[in-house]
Structure formats: structure tokens, C-alpha cells
Design a protein around this nucleic acid. Structure first.
Lengths: 197, 197
DNA sequence: TTATTTGTTGCACATACTGCAATTTCTGCA
DNA sequence: TGCAGAAATTGCAGTATGTGCAACAAATAA
């Protein structure tokens, strides 16, 4: 089987990522060319584009994927859907919780350059799509129906804000920050039914 | 005074926009070069980049700006903040409500190309920043505090989803769609306090 | 070993975008 | 009206991103 090949590719991709993040963190996005990254990663300039479609792609965390078991549990659960979603998503943040150094470096880089801010936001948007699909499945609705779209958008937004808070001034674990953010979200909407701010 | 100059520039920018949207709508983003757009708009290739920093920028609606009076009213109101925000933001959607043809063309183009999806999302993100600032001001909090960030994110997300719904299968006015979406948001969070889905 | 599949590389090329200096077009004022 | 200075447009030369293709190298399966 081509398991070795697979791992080799993953390792190469990772080498490129590390080279890219370090170079850009040190010198800024515009002062680093794909040639320099390739050089540092020990591959040919052409090969860079075999792994990443564009320069900035090497500066983004790999796309997260749900674990199948967790999805199955989510689909049949009858608990409140928001709670279940948080539970489903939290494991995906472990990569960051476990590598806070890399996370903060990436966060720092991202904040510094509009193009990267954009790509980060876009990553969340793609994630939102993924979430939307499982929600629609659980609710037995079409995936472009309003309700799944809305719930997915809200949940993803909550995660995003929580991660930003955590990066900016978070003290505890990422999990705690997410819990906190979601409970605050409930408060906000509860208040909007009354009259005083 | 250079009022004429100002208007002339606005007109040129608009000419470029129209040329860009039409060309891209007809032929797809990748088959349209900045040279072609410049040609169609009757300007030199170099001038295109005096108006737009990158090709795709000509395909985005100009950045919305709050009306000062509306902001002042918002800042001192004591009604529920979510309602006030909706009221503050709705006028900004009038450009689209009044030009549904242009809106749908833009929406169609945006959906077709990942790069443009990204830029649209980014536009909402910049909008979110703007909203965050006025919320912080009203709440007399620092603009990077958690609460303003979260409210801004939620509101912007609501607007985004509403606009998408409206573009996809909206029948009435954009305003109505926004109202509807926000009331659905409240429902979602209300349900998360109970046990049944 | 040999054949096949998979990954890497070099090369040629199109397009995006920038800096600079020359030129044209506008505006305010005499 | 005509002129001086400001602002906008343009051409040119150059760098960097990203793609297609075909040759080549390496790994796997037989």
C-alpha cells in the first residue's frame, strides 16, 4: 500500500508550511517570495504549487475534518442543537490548544496582513459550509434551507469570536472560552426581548 | 473647488465597475484581464490600478458608510440594542434593494468564483469592524472588548445570511428578510435553553 | 528485474501588480 | 483669457504569481 507515500507527502507539506510561517513571521508577507519558501523547504519552486495553489495557502492551518463517530452521535442526539454543535466542534480546536505557539504565530501573521485576514475569514466560511451540511442532515432539511444556514452561521461566528478572544487575551483553555462565548450569546438574544439595554 | 474633479473620479470608478461586472458576468473571472476591462472602460491599463488595488476590487460594491444622524440616534437610544442595530443597518441595504438587477448579477458572479466569495466575506468582515466600533461607543466599552465584538459578529452574520436568503429565494423586500432572520435567530437561542430540538 | 503509477522538476509563458518619470488635464487666480 | 501649479493619466520597465506541459526520477507492484 502507498501509506509511505502518503506520509511523505504530509511531511513535505508540513515542511513547506513551517518554512513559510517562519519566513513570513520574520520578514513579512510581501518580502517573502515563493522561491524563498521553496529554497528554505528544499523543494523546487514549481513543486511549491503542487502542494499549495497560492502562496498564502501555506500560511493557513489545514482544513479541519469531523470525526465520523462524533458526527453519528450528533445526528441522532435530541439534546439542544447548539450544545451538541459545540461538543462536535470543540475537538477540532485541539490542534490549536496543543500548539499555542504556532497558533499565536499564525494569529500574529494573519492580523498583520489584510490578505491573510481575508483568508482566515474564508477558512471559517468554508467551515461554516461543512457545519451547515451536518445540521441539515440532522434536521432532515435541504442543506440550503434558511434554518440550517442560519444556525451554521451563528455557531461558526461564535467559534470565531471565541478564538479571537482567546488569542487576544484568553487565559484559560480554548474550550472554556468557547463555552463562555456561547452563554454570552444566549444572554444577548434574551435581552433583546426586553426593553432596557 | 474641486467638486467636479471628485465627481469625475466617481464617474470613472463607476465606468470601470460596470465594465468589469459585465465582462466578468459574460465571460468568467479568469477569462477577463485587467487590460480588457481598461479597454472597455476607455482608460489605460495603468489607470485601472490607480482606482482599484486589484482586479477583483472592481467587482465589489463600494464600502457602505453610516449616516451620521442615524449613528447619533443609535448612540443614545435605550431600546434593545439588536433592534436598534437592525434599524441602523437597514438603510445601507437600499443600494441593493433599489438595484436588484445589479445585486443579483454581483451575487451570481460571486458565487461562481472562490476568490470572489472570499472577497465578499471579507467585505462583511470589514463591515463587522465598523459595527463593532459604534456598539462599543454606545456601551461605553473598549472596542476590542468581548461583548461589542460578539454583538457585532452576530448582527453582521444575521445580515449576511438574510441577504443570501434573499438572493437565493427571497420574494418580498430585503428589509422583511432581515426582520425574519433576526426573529428566527432569537428562536434558535431560546430553544437552546430547553431540551427538545 | 521490469512495468506502471506517482511525484518532481525545468522551461516557457500569461497575467497581476508596482515604481517612476513624462505628459496631459484640470483648477484657481491674475 | 491665459498662465502657474496641482492632480490625474499614461507608458515603460521590471518583479512576482501561477499554469501547462513534457521530461525525468522514484516508489510500488508484478
Amino acid at each position: 500500500m502507498s501509506d509511505l507515500r502518503e506520509r511523505r507527502k504530509l511531511r513535505t507539506a508540513n515542511t513547506i508550511r513551517v518554512a513559510a510561517v517562519n519566513l513570513v513571521h520574520a520578514q513579512g508577507l510581501d518580502n517573502v517570495t515563493t522561491d524563498m519558501i521553496s529554497e528554505a523547504a528544499g523543494i523546487s519552486p514549481r513543486t511549491f504549487f503542487n502542494y499549495f495553489r497560492y502562496k498564502e495557502a501555506a500560511l493557513l492551518p489545514p482544513t479541519p475534518v469531523f470525526e465520523q463517530n462524533a458526527v453519528n452521535r450528533f445526528l441522532v442526539s435530541t439534546a439542544p442543537i447548539l450544545d451538541d454543535l459545540v461538543e462536535l466542534i470543540i475537538p477540532l480546536t485541539q490542534f490549536f490548544s496543543e500548539n499555542p505557539a504556532m497558533f499565536r504565530k499564525l494569529f500574529e501573521i494573519s492580523q498583520a496582513h489584510p490578505k491573510l485576514v481575508m483568508l482566515k475569514i474564508n477558512a471559517f466560511h468554508e467551515f461554516e459550509d461543512m457545519v451547515r451540511l451536518v445540521i441539515a442532515k440532522r434536521l432532515k432539511m435541504k442543506s440550503d434551507a434558511d434554518k440550517p444556514s442560519l444556525i451554521a452561521a451563528l455557531v461558526t461566528t461564535g467559534i470565531r469570536v471565541a478564538m479571537e478572544s482567546w488569542a487576544n487575551h484568553g487565559t484559560g483553555s480554548a474550550d472554556k472560552e468557547i463555552e463562555r462565548t456561547f452563554s454570552e450569546m444566549k444572554t444577548i438574544f434574551a435581552q433583546s426581548d426586553q426593553t432596557a439595554p
